[in-house]
Every structure is written in C-alpha cells, then in structure tokens.
C-alpha cells in the first residue's frame, strides 16, 4: 500500500519522511530518521523511554502515529545539548550518577526539561509526580530526582 508523505518540524528543522499508516512516531524517529535517542521500553505508554514533545507537550512517541506529525513541532533528546555544550540537566545527570544502563535516560531528560519549562521551581513531590510515567529499573529514582532538583536550582540562578 502507498506510504504517507509527512512534512514536520523536527528539532527546529523542516523534515520530510514517508511512513506506513500504522507506524508509530517512535518507529519513524528510530528506523527512518536515525534518531535513536528515544527508546522503546514497552511500546504501550507505560515506561516513558520514548518521551518527546509535540507542539511543546510531553507525549509518548510510541502512542502516536508518524502520520499524525504533519505540521507539528517535534523535539527529541537529540536537540537538548547545544553542540558540545550539554544541557544543565544532562550535566547534572552525569554529576549525580543518575543513570546506569541509560535506557530510561533520554526519556527522563526530555520529561524533566518539559517539567522545568512549565514549572521552574518544582517541589520534590511535584517532580516525582511529573516523572511518574518514566520508569527506571536501575537507579532507584533518588539520584534522578536529586539531579533534576539540582539542575532546576542552577537554571533558576542562571536566569
């Protein structure tokens, strides 16, 4: 069957791709566009490893069709660092050792960035609720939350 032609803005650049109707945005990003930052942990909306933003809103890319991306603004973890300069969240994740295997990390970074855009001074409880849809099998979450809170503080001071 004929494929769908999609034009979208991806990490600030106009991007075109062809996809099948049932292909998820996650599959398109990883398999067609070579952006393998977003991970597939479950494919059913439970783990958040596939988190991206669409028109500024945090979503699971495994629960969205590639065809739905027409005319949207998609941001992935690949757009977080500014060239060689890491985003404060990325730096704090390294400093606090907030990752082990790293499968959950891109999704958590994207989700945490979205939190701090919406709420630059979250309480720890707010941060934990916001990130409740991002599962991590390795770290026990504590270091992740510390890294997010520390990054939030640094970003507040810098602004």
């Amino acid at each position: 069957m004929s494929q769908i032609h999609v034009t979208t803005r991806l990490n600030g650049d106009e991007t075109e791709f062809l996809c099948d109707a049932q292909e998820t945005l996650l599959d398109v990003l990883r398999n067609r566009l070579g952006l393998t930052g977003a991970k597939e942990g479950c494919g059913t909306g439970d783990c958040g490893a596939c988190s991206v933003t669409v028109d500024g809103r945090l979503v699971c890319s495994c629960l969205m069709l590639g065809a739905e991306a027409v005319g949207r603004e998609i941001e992935t973890v690949e757009n977080m660092a500014d060239g060689e300069t890491l985003h404060p969240l990325q730096r704090k994740f390294l400093e606090h050792a907030a990752l082990q295997c790293g499968i959950c990390t891109p999704g958590i970074l994207v989700a945490a960035k979205s939190l701090l855009e919406q709420n630059p001074s979250p309480t720890e409880e707010e941060a934990r609720y916001w990130l409740a849809g991002n599962l991590c099998r390795c770290t026990g979450y504590d270091k992740i939350i510390r890294a997010v809170m520390d990054a939030a503080e640094e970003m507040r001071r810098a602004s």
Partner: peptide, 9 residues
Amino acid sequence: IGSTQVQGR
C-alpha cells in the same frame, strides 16, 4: 488518567 505523557493526549 495515566502519566504526564498520557495526559498530553
């Protein structure tokens, strides 16, 4: 309903 991500949709 679900997580922040799910609530976005």
